[in-house]
Amino acid sequence: MEKKYWTIQEVACHLGVAPSLIRFWEKSFSGILQPHKNSKGARRYQEKDIAQLQYIYTLVKEKGYSLAGARKVIQKHGIASTITPGEVVQRLRRLRSFLVALKID
């Protein structure tokens, strides 16, 4: 069974960044990043939150955008254009089924 929520430490380890950077991005992209918080204030990230963080990571760390530039890109194109790894697997399985069906015909 797949997890529904991840801690900030797990997300930071997955992205290879410090938890403080994730908290900083959360403040910088406050309208976009809004993870759930439990009664004690601990952040709980869902798969969509992790996909958003991955997109921000790609823009800032890999493509070299400033935070303001990344915000503009996200406002212009939206962050919903990113797909989760689970969706990728589902799409690839459907494509494979389709191709196998073509091969049989």
Results as ranks from 00 to 15, higher is better:
residue 59 L to Q: 02
residue 15 L to G: 10
residue 74 I to G: 02
residue 101 A to I: 02
residue 75 Q to D: 14
residue 28 S to C: 10
residue 28 S to E: 15
residue 57 Y to G: 06
residue 92 L to E: 01
residue 96 R to T: 00
residue 80 A to T: 15
residue 11 V to A: 06
residue 90 Q to N: 05
residue 105 D to Y: 12
residue 4 K to D: 12
residue 93 R to T: 01
residue 30 S to M: 09
residue 25 W to T: 11
residue 10 E to G: 09
residue 22 I to C: 08
residue 3 K to A: 10
residue 62 E to H: 04
residue 19 P to S: 05
residue 13 C to I: 11
residue 58 T to Q: 15
residue 34 Q to C: 09
residue 99 L to C: 01
residue 20 S to V: 14
residue 59 L to N: 00
residue 65 Y to P: 02
residue 45 Y to Q: 02
residue 104 I to F: 09
residue 23 R to C: 08
residue 64 G to V: 01
residue 99 L to T: 00
residue 57 Y to K: 06
residue 101 A to S: 01
residue 94 R to C: 00
residue 93 R to Y: 02
residue 97 S to F: 02
residue 17 V to I: 09
residue 72 K to F: 12
residue 23 R to D: 12
residue 67 L to Y: 08
residue 62 E to Q: 04
residue 42 A to W: 13
residue 65 Y to I: 01
residue 33 L to P: 04
residue 20 S to C: 09
residue 96 R to K: 01
residue 16 G to L: 05
residue 98 F to R: 00
residue 61 K to G: 06
residue 84 T to Y: 06
residue 43 R to M: 03
residue 12 A to Q: 11
residue 58 T to W: 13
residue 98 F to I: 02
residue 87 E to S: 09
residue 49 D to W: 03
residue 97 S to L: 00
residue 102 L to N: 06
residue 72 K to R: 14
residue 88 V to P: 00
residue 28 S to W: 11
residue 1 M to S: 11
residue 85 P to D: 10
residue 94 R to L: 01
residue 11 V to P: 07
residue 94 R to F: 00
residue 77 H to D: 13
residue 62 E to W: 05
residue 91 R to N: 04
residue 3 K to Y: 10
residue 77 H to K: 13
residue 97 S to Y: 00
residue 33 L to K: 07
residue 35 P to T: 04
residue 39 S to M: 08
residue 43 R to I: 03
residue 26 E to Y: 10
residue 42 A to V: 13
residue 60 V to P: 03
residue 81 S to Y: 13
residue 104 I to K: 13
residue 80 A to F: 12
residue 103 K to F: 02
residue 42 A to D: 15
residue 67 L to V: 07
residue 47 E to N: 04
residue 100 V to A: 01
residue 13 C to K: 15
residue 86 G to L: 05
residue 4 K to G: 08
residue 28 S to M: 10
residue 45 Y to K: 00
residue 71 R to I: 09
residue 85 P to Q: 06
residue 11 V to R: 04
residue 74 I to D: 04
residue 54 Q to F: 04
residue 40 K to Y: 14
residue 90 Q to R: 13
residue 58 T to D: 12
residue 104 I to R: 13
residue 100 V to G: 01
residue 36 H to R: 13
residue 12 A to V: 09
residue 18 A to N: 15
residue 84 T to H: 07
residue 3 K to G: 08
residue 101 A to E: 02
residue 40 K to I: 09
residue 102 L to F: 02
residue 12 A to S: 12
residue 69 G to S: 02
residue 46 Q to F: 03
residue 43 R to A: 04
residue 32 I to Q: 13
residue 21 L to W: 09
residue 48 K to Q: 15
residue 90 Q to C: 05
residue 102 L to T: 00
residue 49 D to H: 02
residue 24 F to R: 12
